[in-house]
């Protein structure tokens, strides 16, 4: 896919030229439409941004003012952010989130790529069945299997109270990432792979030296998705790690932060923004890879 902004510019042109035979009346309608569209766009953009603005404004209020209906801070308390970082556990939650998201993403990529490759480019008995199973796993609500899964990790492996029960499974391939990578792999012409085969490469060599370099953009997109999925995950840490505050992640800890600072909406909002921040920063840096990823398959719930 070409860069979206470029294609936006491209498609904008034909429609303007389409109005070539328009008379004055139609031109006036065109101007009105232009103004109307941009006004609606601007209005909606403000509505979408306002929540962030209110969060930011409240996060720098004093505790007392944050409990009032005031919208604008009387005095600016940027030190609220420092106070959030000093809160017991906050730094630990950051580390845990980074570990879960970082390790989880690395494992996902390493374990999912070969499966996606096999499903897209290799012929073997039961391939379609395997694909159906991947899609079924992808669509399965995690709550369906959570009770036996918890009992397995608790009673057989004794790993509850840690994040391992949600990290280890990623080493066995993540259905969603497999599916996404497979969709991308389908677009790679067979000839490249056949050429590698002729050169005498085995499947692993072909995968590592020919395919992986070609699907780098998709790998980046899938890695970003997985990172965000782990970063945002609340259910997993709640089930497996909630009994041990030392293993909490930011997403889970934020909830208890709200509980412990029930009256400090300013601190809660500061903490909320601090949890959102990494995701937003990464997105702004890697926007292109992202949009490509979303449009890759039209999935991602």
């Amino acid at each position: 896919m070409a860069d979206l902004t470029e294609s936006l510019a491209l498609t904008a042109r034909p429609r303007t030229t389409g109005a070539v035979k328009s008379d004055q009346w139609r031109r006036r309608i065109g101007v009105l439409e232009w103004v109307g569209l941009h006004a609606v766009g601007l209005g909606l953009a403000i509505v979408f941004v306002l929540p962030f603005v209110f969060l930011l404004l409240t996060s720098v209020m004093s505790s007392d003012q944050a409990l009032t209906t005031d919208l604008w801070p009387r005095t600016w308390h940027w030190e609220n952010y420092a106070q959030v970082f000093r809160t017991e556990g906050f730094v630990t939650w950051w580390k845990n989130s980074l570990m879960y998201a970082g390790l989880g993403t690395a494992l996902t990529i390493v374990s999912s790529t070969p499966v996606a490759y096999a499903l897209a480019k290799m012929r073997f008995t039961g391939r379609n069945a395997a694909l159906m199973l991947v899609i079924s796993m992808m669509m399965l609500p995690p709550q369906v299997v959570i009770v036996p899964m918890y009992l397995l990790w608790a009673k057989q492996f004794h790993l509850t109270g840690t994040l391992w029960p949600i990290i280890i499974p990623l080493a066995f391939g993540d259905a969603y990432s497999i599916f996404l990578l497979r969709q991308f792999l389908l677009t790679i012409p067979r000839e490249y792979i056949d050429a590698a085969k002729v050169d005498g490469c085995g499947e692993w060599r072909t995968l590592l030296s020919v395919v992986v370099p070609m699907i780098k953009p998709a790998l980046v997109a899938v890695a970003l998705f997985q990172f965000f999925y782990c970063w945002n995950d609340y259910f997993g840490p709640q089930i497996y790690a909630s009994e041990n505050p030392a293993a909490w992640t930011l997403s889970y800890g934020l909830q208890s932060f709200k509980g412990a600072h029930h009256v400090n909406w300013n601190l809660t909002m500061a903490a909320t923004l601090l949890v959102m921040a990494p995701v937003i920063v990464i997105f702004l840096l890697a926007q292109r890879a992202f949009i490509r990823g979303v449009t890759l398959t039209g999935v991602k719930g």
Binding site: L4, T5, L8, A12, W34, L37, H38, G41, L44, A45, F48, V49, P51, F52, F54, L55, T58, F228, W231, N232, Y234, L250, S251, Y252, L254, Q255, K258, W265, T268, M269, T272, L273, V275, M276, V279, I280, F283, L284, Q287, I291
Partner: peptide, 29 residues
Amino acid sequence: VKRGAGLLRTVFYLPYLAPPVAATIAFAF
């Protein structure tokens, strides 16, 4: 939209990325 389509797209996309716990606490507020 002809002007600022890229910016609009970013603005409309950003909230989707907000971690659900954070977005929910924000909306409760």
